[in-house]
Nucleic acid binder design. Structure first.
Lengths: 219, 219
DNA sequence: ACACCGGGTATTGTATACAATAGAATCAAT
DNA sequence: ATTGATTCTATTGTATACAATACCCGGTGT
Protein backbone atom coordinates (compact mmCIF):
# COMPACT_ATOMS: atom_id res chain seq x y z
CA UNK A 1 0.00 0.00 0.00
CA UNK A 2 1.07 3.63 0.54
CA UNK A 3 0.82 4.17 -3.15
CA UNK A 4 0.84 7.56 -4.74
CA UNK A 5 0.57 9.88 -1.82
CA UNK A 6 4.07 9.62 -0.49
CA UNK A 7 5.14 8.49 2.92
CA UNK A 8 5.70 10.47 6.05
CA UNK A 9 2.47 11.21 7.83
CA UNK A 10 0.50 8.58 9.56
CA UNK A 11 -2.94 8.35 8.04
CA UNK A 12 -3.85 9.08 4.47
CA UNK A 13 -5.68 12.19 5.55
CA UNK A 14 -2.58 13.50 7.27
CA UNK A 15 -0.36 12.78 4.31
CA UNK A 16 -2.78 14.39 1.89
CA UNK A 17 -3.14 17.42 4.11
CA UNK A 18 0.61 17.90 4.27
CA UNK A 19 1.01 17.32 0.55
CA UNK A 20 -1.72 19.74 -0.46
CA UNK A 21 -0.43 22.38 1.92
CA UNK A 22 3.06 22.01 0.53
CA UNK A 23 1.76 22.19 -3.02
CA UNK A 24 -0.14 25.37 -2.29
CA UNK A 25 2.81 26.93 -0.54
CA UNK A 26 5.10 25.86 -3.36
CA UNK A 27 2.84 27.60 -5.80
CA UNK A 28 1.81 24.43 -7.60
CA UNK A 29 -1.74 25.53 -7.04
CA UNK A 30 -2.14 29.25 -7.51
CA UNK A 31 -4.65 31.59 -5.95
CA UNK A 32 -8.06 31.09 -7.49
CA UNK A 33 -7.35 27.56 -8.69
CA UNK A 34 -10.12 25.17 -7.86
CA UNK A 35 -9.45 21.96 -6.02
CA UNK A 36 -11.82 19.22 -7.08
CA UNK A 37 -12.12 16.39 -4.61
CA UNK A 38 -12.61 13.65 -7.15
CA UNK A 39 -9.77 14.84 -9.34
CA UNK A 40 -7.33 15.01 -6.44
CA UNK A 41 -8.51 11.66 -5.16
CA UNK A 42 -7.84 10.00 -8.50
CA UNK A 43 -4.47 11.67 -8.85
CA UNK A 44 -3.39 10.30 -5.52
CA UNK A 45 -5.09 6.96 -5.95
CA UNK A 46 -7.38 7.26 -2.93
CA UNK A 47 -11.06 7.88 -2.37
CA UNK A 48 -12.69 11.23 -1.83
CA UNK A 49 -13.07 10.81 1.92
CA UNK A 50 -9.53 11.50 3.10
CA UNK A 51 -9.19 14.24 0.50
CA UNK A 52 -12.28 15.95 1.85
CA UNK A 53 -10.97 15.85 5.37
CA UNK A 54 -7.65 17.28 4.31
CA UNK A 55 -9.41 20.08 2.48
CA UNK A 56 -11.51 20.91 5.51
CA UNK A 57 -8.33 21.34 7.49
CA UNK A 58 -6.78 23.56 4.85
CA UNK A 59 -9.95 25.60 5.02
CA UNK A 60 -9.56 26.11 8.74
CA UNK A 61 -5.99 27.24 8.21
CA UNK A 62 -7.25 29.75 5.71
CA UNK A 63 -5.34 28.38 2.73
CA UNK A 64 -8.48 27.58 0.79
CA UNK A 65 -12.07 28.70 0.94
CA UNK A 66 -15.06 26.67 -0.02
CA UNK A 67 -18.31 27.69 -1.65
CA UNK A 68 -20.94 25.11 -0.79
CA UNK A 69 -21.96 22.85 -3.67
CA UNK A 70 -19.70 24.78 -5.94
CA UNK A 71 -16.11 24.10 -5.14
CA UNK A 72 -13.00 24.75 -3.17
CA UNK A 73 -10.60 27.47 -4.22
CA UNK A 74 -7.07 28.29 -3.29
CA UNK A 75 -6.84 31.38 -1.17
CA UNK A 76 -3.18 32.06 -1.71
CA UNK A 77 -0.84 34.17 0.31
CA UNK A 78 -0.32 37.76 -0.72
CA UNK A 79 2.89 39.61 -0.04
CA UNK A 80 0.82 41.73 2.34
CA UNK A 81 0.12 38.56 4.29
CA UNK A 82 3.81 37.81 4.45
CA UNK A 83 4.61 41.26 5.76
CA UNK A 84 1.87 40.95 8.36
CA UNK A 85 3.23 37.62 9.44
CA UNK A 86 6.67 39.06 9.96
CA UNK A 87 5.22 41.90 12.00
CA UNK A 88 3.29 39.44 14.11
CA UNK A 89 6.32 37.26 14.53
CA UNK A 90 8.32 40.22 15.78
CA UNK A 91 5.92 40.48 18.69
CA UNK A 92 5.39 36.83 19.28
CA UNK A 93 8.92 35.57 19.06
CA UNK A 94 9.89 38.15 21.63
CA UNK A 95 7.35 36.62 23.94
CA UNK A 96 8.57 33.18 22.96
CA UNK A 97 12.14 34.10 23.82
CA UNK A 98 11.20 35.30 27.29
CA UNK A 99 9.11 32.27 28.09
CA UNK A 100 11.54 29.80 26.57
CA UNK A 101 14.49 31.20 28.51
CA UNK A 102 12.53 30.91 31.72
CA UNK A 103 11.21 27.43 31.07
CA UNK A 104 13.76 25.63 28.91
CA UNK A 105 15.48 22.65 30.49
CA UNK A 106 19.19 22.02 30.15
CA UNK A 107 18.82 19.21 27.70
CA UNK A 108 16.89 21.33 25.24
CA UNK A 109 19.45 24.08 25.70
CA UNK A 110 22.14 21.63 24.73
CA UNK A 111 20.11 20.67 21.67
CA UNK A 112 19.70 24.29 20.71
CA UNK A 113 23.44 24.77 20.90
CA UNK A 114 23.92 21.67 18.83
CA UNK A 115 21.53 22.86 16.14
CA UNK A 116 23.44 26.09 15.96
CA UNK A 117 26.72 24.26 15.49
CA UNK A 118 25.19 22.15 12.74
CA UNK A 119 23.99 25.30 11.06
CA UNK A 120 27.51 26.64 11.18
CA UNK A 121 28.82 23.45 9.62
CA UNK A 122 26.34 23.41 6.74
CA UNK A 123 26.60 27.13 6.18
CA UNK A 124 30.34 26.56 5.72
CA UNK A 125 29.61 23.77 3.28
CA UNK A 126 27.11 25.95 1.45
CA UNK A 127 24.26 23.47 1.85
CA UNK A 128 21.63 26.10 2.44
CA UNK A 129 18.66 23.77 2.04
CA UNK A 130 19.91 21.84 5.03
CA UNK A 131 20.53 25.10 6.87
CA UNK A 132 16.94 26.07 6.18
CA UNK A 133 15.70 22.85 7.74
CA UNK A 134 17.90 23.34 10.78
CA UNK A 135 16.67 26.89 11.04
CA UNK A 136 13.10 25.61 11.27
CA UNK A 137 14.11 23.08 13.88
CA UNK A 138 15.92 25.78 15.83
CA UNK A 139 12.89 28.00 16.06
CA UNK A 140 10.56 25.07 16.62
CA UNK A 141 12.65 24.01 19.58
CA UNK A 142 12.30 27.47 21.05
CA UNK A 143 8.53 27.36 20.54
CA UNK A 144 8.39 23.95 22.12
CA UNK A 145 10.36 25.17 25.10
CA UNK A 146 7.86 27.90 25.86
CA UNK A 147 5.58 25.06 27.00
CA UNK A 148 2.74 27.23 25.76
CA UNK A 149 0.19 25.47 23.64
CA UNK A 150 -1.38 28.63 22.20
CA UNK A 151 1.95 30.20 21.31
CA UNK A 152 3.32 27.01 19.80
CA UNK A 153 0.29 26.65 17.60
CA UNK A 154 0.45 30.11 16.12
CA UNK A 155 4.15 30.16 15.48
CA UNK A 156 4.36 26.66 14.06
CA UNK A 157 1.65 27.43 11.55
CA UNK A 158 3.43 30.56 10.44
CA UNK A 159 6.63 28.61 10.17
CA UNK A 160 5.07 26.62 7.33
CA UNK A 161 3.51 29.61 5.70
CA UNK A 162 6.75 31.42 5.26
CA UNK A 163 9.12 28.46 5.07
CA UNK A 164 9.86 28.86 1.39
CA UNK A 165 10.33 32.58 1.59
CA UNK A 166 12.74 32.22 4.44
CA UNK A 167 14.72 29.72 2.46
CA UNK A 168 14.92 32.02 -0.53
CA UNK A 169 15.94 34.86 1.76
CA UNK A 170 18.68 32.72 3.21
CA UNK A 171 20.13 32.29 -0.24
CA UNK A 172 20.68 35.97 -0.85
CA UNK A 173 24.36 36.89 -0.68
CA UNK A 174 25.80 37.20 2.80
CA UNK A 175 22.50 36.57 4.55
CA UNK A 176 23.36 33.03 5.60
CA UNK A 177 26.44 34.19 7.47
CA UNK A 178 24.60 37.06 9.11
CA UNK A 179 21.77 34.76 10.08
CA UNK A 180 24.26 32.36 11.61
CA UNK A 181 25.75 35.09 13.77
CA UNK A 182 22.30 36.10 14.94
CA UNK A 183 21.53 32.54 15.90
CA UNK A 184 24.79 32.36 17.82
CA UNK A 185 23.84 35.49 19.73
CA UNK A 186 20.48 33.94 20.54
CA UNK A 187 22.11 30.80 21.89
CA UNK A 188 24.45 32.88 24.03
CA UNK A 189 21.57 34.79 25.56
CA UNK A 190 19.74 31.53 26.22
CA UNK A 191 22.79 30.01 27.88
CA UNK A 192 23.07 33.04 30.14
CA UNK A 193 19.34 32.80 30.87
CA UNK A 194 19.13 36.48 30.07
CA UNK A 195 15.50 36.95 29.06
CA UNK A 196 15.93 40.65 28.38
CA UNK A 197 18.79 40.15 25.97
CA UNK A 198 17.25 37.02 24.46
CA UNK A 199 14.12 38.89 23.55
CA UNK A 200 16.13 41.71 22.04
CA UNK A 201 18.38 39.58 19.84
CA UNK A 202 15.58 37.31 18.69
CA UNK A 203 13.35 40.22 17.73
CA UNK A 204 16.29 41.78 15.97
CA UNK A 205 16.82 38.53 14.11
CA UNK A 206 13.24 38.48 12.87
CA UNK A 207 13.48 42.12 11.91
CA UNK A 208 16.58 41.45 9.84
CA UNK A 209 14.97 38.49 8.15
CA UNK A 210 12.06 40.68 7.27
CA UNK A 211 14.24 43.48 5.97
CA UNK A 212 16.12 40.99 3.86
CA UNK A 213 12.83 39.70 2.45
CA UNK A 214 11.70 43.21 1.57
CA UNK A 215 15.00 44.02 -0.07
CA UNK A 216 14.77 40.78 -2.01
CA UNK A 217 11.27 41.53 -3.23
CA UNK A 218 12.39 44.74 -4.83
CA UNK A 219 14.88 42.91 -7.06
CA UNK B 1 -34.66 18.76 7.98
CA UNK B 2 -32.20 20.52 10.31
CA UNK B 3 -33.17 18.12 13.00
CA UNK B 4 -31.21 17.69 16.18
CA UNK B 5 -28.11 19.70 15.55
CA UNK B 6 -29.49 23.15 15.91
CA UNK B 7 -29.53 25.87 13.30
CA UNK B 8 -27.04 28.56 12.56
CA UNK B 9 -24.18 27.28 10.46
CA UNK B 10 -24.55 26.39 6.88
CA UNK B 11 -23.65 22.76 6.39
CA UNK B 12 -24.07 19.99 8.90
CA UNK B 13 -20.32 19.79 9.33
CA UNK B 14 -20.16 23.48 10.18
CA UNK B 15 -23.01 23.23 12.65
CA UNK B 16 -21.52 20.19 14.30
CA UNK B 17 -18.12 21.82 14.48
CA UNK B 18 -19.55 24.89 16.18
CA UNK B 19 -21.68 22.83 18.52
CA UNK B 20 -18.85 20.55 19.60
CA UNK B 21 -16.51 23.48 20.09
CA UNK B 22 -19.09 25.26 22.18
CA UNK B 23 -19.72 22.13 24.22
CA UNK B 24 -16.02 21.69 24.91
CA UNK B 25 -15.62 25.34 25.82
CA UNK B 26 -18.71 25.16 28.00
CA UNK B 27 -17.20 22.25 29.87
CA UNK B 28 -19.85 19.78 28.76
CA UNK B 29 -17.00 17.59 27.64
CA UNK B 30 -14.13 17.69 30.06
CA UNK B 31 -10.45 17.13 29.41
CA UNK B 32 -9.74 13.47 28.80
CA UNK B 33 -13.29 12.64 27.78
CA UNK B 34 -13.42 10.56 24.65
CA UNK B 35 -15.52 11.60 21.70
CA UNK B 36 -16.87 8.64 19.80
CA UNK B 37 -17.93 9.40 16.27
CA UNK B 38 -20.81 6.98 16.15
CA UNK B 39 -22.18 8.04 19.51
CA UNK B 40 -22.09 11.72 18.60
CA UNK B 41 -23.59 10.99 15.20
CA UNK B 42 -26.52 9.16 16.75
CA UNK B 43 -27.05 11.84 19.37
CA UNK B 44 -27.31 14.45 16.68
CA UNK B 45 -29.22 12.29 14.25
CA UNK B 46 -26.66 12.43 11.46
CA UNK B 47 -24.14 10.07 9.96
CA UNK B 48 -20.52 9.73 10.97
CA UNK B 49 -19.19 11.65 8.00
CA UNK B 50 -19.92 15.22 9.03
CA UNK B 51 -19.01 14.37 12.62
CA UNK B 52 -15.62 13.13 11.50
CA UNK B 53 -14.96 16.27 9.54
CA UNK B 54 -15.90 18.45 12.47
CA UNK B 55 -13.60 16.48 14.73
CA UNK B 56 -10.71 16.85 12.32
CA UNK B 57 -11.19 20.60 12.49
CA UNK B 58 -11.29 20.59 16.25
CA UNK B 59 -8.07 18.64 16.14
CA UNK B 60 -6.39 21.30 14.05
CA UNK B 61 -7.52 23.94 16.51
CA UNK B 62 -5.95 21.92 19.27
CA UNK B 63 -9.13 21.32 21.22
CA UNK B 64 -8.96 17.55 20.83
CA UNK B 65 -6.25 15.07 19.99
CA UNK B 66 -6.70 11.82 18.20
CA UNK B 67 -4.94 8.51 18.65
CA UNK B 68 -5.28 6.54 15.44
CA UNK B 69 -7.62 3.58 15.63
CA UNK B 70 -8.19 4.29 19.27
CA UNK B 71 -10.19 7.41 19.71
CA UNK B 72 -10.46 11.13 20.03
CA UNK B 73 -9.97 12.83 23.36
CA UNK B 74 -10.73 16.28 24.62
CA UNK B 75 -7.62 18.34 25.14
CA UNK B 76 -9.14 20.96 27.38
CA UNK B 77 -7.90 24.42 28.21
CA UNK B 78 -5.81 24.85 31.30
CA UNK B 79 -5.70 28.09 33.22
CA UNK B 80 -2.12 28.34 32.07
CA UNK B 81 -3.43 28.41 28.51
CA UNK B 82 -5.79 31.20 29.40
CA UNK B 83 -3.02 33.27 30.92
CA UNK B 84 -0.87 32.70 27.88
CA UNK B 85 -3.68 33.76 25.62
CA UNK B 86 -4.09 36.99 27.52
CA UNK B 87 -0.36 37.65 27.27
CA UNK B 88 -0.47 37.00 23.56
CA UNK B 89 -3.49 39.20 23.14
CA UNK B 90 -1.71 42.04 24.88
CA UNK B 91 0.85 42.03 22.10
CA UNK B 92 -1.47 41.30 19.26
CA UNK B 93 -4.30 43.66 20.03
CA UNK B 94 -1.77 46.44 20.26
CA UNK B 95 -0.76 45.61 16.72
CA UNK B 96 -4.42 45.31 15.77
CA UNK B 97 -5.15 48.75 17.17
CA UNK B 98 -2.37 50.38 15.16
CA UNK B 99 -3.35 48.70 11.92
CA UNK B 100 -7.06 49.20 12.41
CA UNK B 101 -6.71 52.89 13.11
CA UNK B 102 -4.68 53.32 9.96
CA UNK B 103 -6.96 51.27 7.75
CA UNK B 104 -10.47 51.57 9.14
CA UNK B 105 -13.02 53.32 6.94
CA UNK B 106 -15.49 55.83 8.28
CA UNK B 107 -18.45 53.51 8.09
CA UNK B 108 -16.80 50.93 10.31
CA UNK B 109 -15.79 53.67 12.68
CA UNK B 110 -19.42 54.69 12.92
CA UNK B 111 -20.35 51.09 13.60
CA UNK B 112 -17.73 50.86 16.32
CA UNK B 113 -19.17 53.93 17.97
CA UNK B 114 -22.61 52.47 17.69
CA UNK B 115 -21.56 49.19 19.30
CA UNK B 116 -20.10 51.15 22.16
CA UNK B 117 -23.34 53.02 22.67
CA UNK B 118 -25.28 49.79 22.66
CA UNK B 119 -22.93 48.42 25.26
CA UNK B 120 -23.62 51.45 27.38
CA UNK B 121 -27.34 50.90 27.05
CA UNK B 122 -27.26 47.23 28.00
CA UNK B 123 -24.74 47.79 30.77
CA UNK B 124 -27.23 50.24 32.23
CA UNK B 125 -30.01 47.67 31.91
CA UNK B 126 -27.77 45.04 33.50
CA UNK B 127 -28.11 42.65 30.56
CA UNK B 128 -24.51 41.48 30.71
CA UNK B 129 -25.00 38.53 28.37
CA UNK B 130 -25.93 40.96 25.65
CA UNK B 131 -22.99 43.17 26.63
CA UNK B 132 -20.71 40.17 26.24
CA UNK B 133 -21.95 39.56 22.72
CA UNK B 134 -21.48 43.21 21.82
CA UNK B 135 -18.02 43.08 23.32
CA UNK B 136 -17.14 40.25 20.97
CA UNK B 137 -18.56 42.15 18.03
CA UNK B 138 -16.61 45.23 19.07
CA UNK B 139 -13.29 43.45 19.06
CA UNK B 140 -14.16 41.47 15.95
CA UNK B 141 -14.87 44.69 14.11
CA UNK B 142 -11.43 45.95 15.07
CA UNK B 143 -9.83 42.73 13.86
CA UNK B 144 -11.77 42.96 10.63
CA UNK B 145 -10.62 46.52 10.11
CA UNK B 146 -6.96 45.58 10.27
CA UNK B 147 -7.56 43.97 6.86
CA UNK B 148 -4.96 41.44 7.91
CA UNK B 149 -5.90 37.84 7.28
CA UNK B 150 -3.24 36.33 9.57
CA UNK B 151 -4.05 38.64 12.46
CA UNK B 152 -7.79 38.19 12.08
CA UNK B 153 -7.43 34.45 12.17
CA UNK B 154 -5.42 34.32 15.36
CA UNK B 155 -7.50 36.78 17.30
CA UNK B 156 -10.86 35.42 16.22
CA UNK B 157 -9.89 31.94 17.34
CA UNK B 158 -8.80 33.22 20.72
CA UNK B 159 -12.02 35.14 20.99
CA UNK B 160 -13.91 31.84 21.10
CA UNK B 161 -11.45 30.20 23.40
CA UNK B 162 -11.86 32.76 26.12
CA UNK B 163 -15.38 33.91 25.38
CA UNK B 164 -16.91 32.31 28.45
CA UNK B 165 -14.20 33.49 30.75
CA UNK B 166 -14.55 37.01 29.53
CA UNK B 167 -18.27 36.85 30.15
CA UNK B 168 -17.75 35.60 33.70
CA UNK B 169 -15.18 38.31 34.27
CA UNK B 170 -17.64 40.91 33.05
CA UNK B 171 -20.05 39.84 35.73
CA UNK B 172 -17.75 40.57 38.62
CA UNK B 173 -18.82 43.68 40.54
CA UNK B 174 -17.92 46.96 38.92
CA UNK B 175 -16.06 45.39 36.01
CA UNK B 176 -18.80 46.03 33.47
CA UNK B 177 -18.71 49.76 34.13
CA UNK B 178 -14.93 49.88 34.03
CA UNK B 179 -14.91 47.88 30.82
CA UNK B 180 -17.39 50.28 29.30
CA UNK B 181 -15.19 53.25 30.07
CA UNK B 182 -12.21 51.51 28.52
CA UNK B 183 -14.20 50.86 25.38
CA UNK B 184 -15.21 54.49 25.23
CA UNK B 185 -11.57 55.50 25.47
CA UNK B 186 -10.76 53.14 22.62
CA UNK B 187 -13.46 54.63 20.44
CA UNK B 188 -12.19 58.13 21.17
CA UNK B 189 -8.66 57.21 20.16
CA UNK B 190 -9.98 55.62 16.98
CA UNK B 191 -12.03 58.69 16.12
CA UNK B 192 -8.95 60.84 16.56
CA UNK B 193 -7.00 58.39 14.42
CA UNK B 194 -4.37 58.41 17.12
CA UNK B 195 -2.58 55.08 16.67
CA UNK B 196 -0.21 55.69 19.55
CA UNK B 197 -2.98 56.32 22.04
CA UNK B 198 -5.21 53.63 20.54
CA UNK B 199 -2.57 51.02 21.06
CA UNK B 200 -1.99 52.15 24.62
CA UNK B 201 -5.63 52.14 25.72
CA UNK B 202 -6.43 48.88 24.00
CA UNK B 203 -3.47 47.10 25.54
CA UNK B 204 -4.43 48.59 28.88
CA UNK B 205 -7.95 47.25 28.38
CA UNK B 206 -6.68 43.72 27.77
CA UNK B 207 -4.36 43.99 30.75
CA UNK B 208 -7.24 45.00 33.01
CA UNK B 209 -9.40 42.16 31.72
CA UNK B 210 -6.58 39.80 32.49
CA UNK B 211 -6.05 41.21 35.97
CA UNK B 212 -9.72 40.88 36.64
CA UNK B 213 -9.63 37.27 35.54
CA UNK B 214 -6.71 36.51 37.80
CA UNK B 215 -8.39 38.18 40.72
CA UNK B 216 -11.53 36.21 40.01
CA UNK B 217 -9.66 32.91 39.87
CA UNK B 218 -8.42 33.39 43.37
CA UNK B 219 -11.95 33.61 44.79
C1' DA C 1 -32.89 40.12 -30.18
C1' DC C 2 -34.01 39.01 -25.53
C1' DA C 3 -35.87 37.26 -21.45
C1' DC C 4 -37.36 33.15 -19.43
C1' DC C 5 -37.76 28.35 -18.57
C1' DG C 6 -35.96 23.55 -18.16
C1' DG C 7 -32.95 19.98 -18.27
C1' DG C 8 -28.19 18.30 -17.88
C1' DT C 9 -23.74 18.25 -15.81
C1' DA C 10 -20.29 19.01 -12.47
C1' DT C 11 -19.49 19.28 -7.81
C1' DT C 12 -20.11 18.96 -3.18
C1' DG C 13 -23.01 17.06 0.94
C1' DT C 14 -24.44 13.03 3.41
C1' DA C 15 -25.08 8.22 4.42
C1' DT C 16 -23.63 3.65 4.63
C1' DA C 17 -20.72 -0.39 3.93
C1' DC C 18 -16.54 -2.61 4.57
C1' DA C 19 -11.48 -2.98 6.18
C1' DA C 20 -7.91 -2.44 9.53
C1' DT C 21 -6.32 -1.76 13.92
C1' DA C 22 -5.73 -1.60 19.02
C1' DG C 23 -6.92 -3.14 23.25
C1' DA C 24 -9.56 -6.15 26.37
C1' DA C 25 -10.99 -10.49 27.67
C1' DT C 26 -10.60 -15.32 27.54
C1' DC C 27 -8.38 -19.49 27.93
C1' DA C 28 -4.80 -22.91 27.87
C1' DA C 29 -0.18 -24.38 29.15
C1' DT C 30 3.38 -24.46 32.35
C1' DA D 1 -0.70 -18.15 39.58
C1' DT D 2 1.51 -16.30 35.61
C1' DT D 3 2.32 -15.88 31.05
C1' DG D 4 1.40 -16.24 26.35
C1' DA D 5 -1.50 -16.81 22.46
C1' DT D 6 -6.05 -16.03 20.55
C1' DT D 7 -10.42 -14.41 19.82
C1' DC D 8 -13.63 -10.68 20.35
C1' DT D 9 -15.14 -6.03 20.46
C1' DA D 10 -14.96 -1.15 19.98
C1' DT D 11 -13.32 2.29 17.20
C1' DT D 12 -11.43 4.58 13.58
C1' DG D 13 -9.83 4.52 8.45
C1' DT D 14 -11.26 4.23 3.75
C1' DA D 15 -14.27 3.48 -0.13
C1' DT D 16 -18.46 3.93 -2.45
C1' DA D 17 -23.30 5.00 -3.29
C1' DC D 18 -26.78 8.24 -3.37
C1' DA D 19 -28.88 13.09 -2.67
C1' DA D 20 -28.91 17.98 -3.22
C1' DT D 21 -27.39 21.97 -5.24
C1' DA D 22 -25.56 25.50 -8.44
C1' DC D 23 -24.46 26.69 -12.81
C1' DC D 24 -24.22 26.29 -17.75
C1' DC D 25 -26.53 25.98 -22.06
C1' DG D 26 -29.86 25.39 -25.24
C1' DG D 27 -34.53 26.02 -26.57
C1' DT D 28 -38.80 28.70 -26.84
C1' DG D 29 -42.03 32.33 -26.84
C1' DT D 30 -42.62 37.07 -27.70
Amino acid sequence: MKRGVGQGGYSLREKIFLKLRQDILDGKYKAGDSLVELKLAEEMGVSRTPVREAIRQLELEGLVFSIPNKGVFVEGITSQDIEDIYAIRECMEGLAARWAIERMDDQSLKELENLCELMEFYTGKGDLDRVGELNSEFHDLIFESTKSKPLKQILSDFQYYIGNIRLASLKSPGRAEQSLNEHKAIVEAFKDRDAERGERVLVEHIRNTRRNYEKMRKD
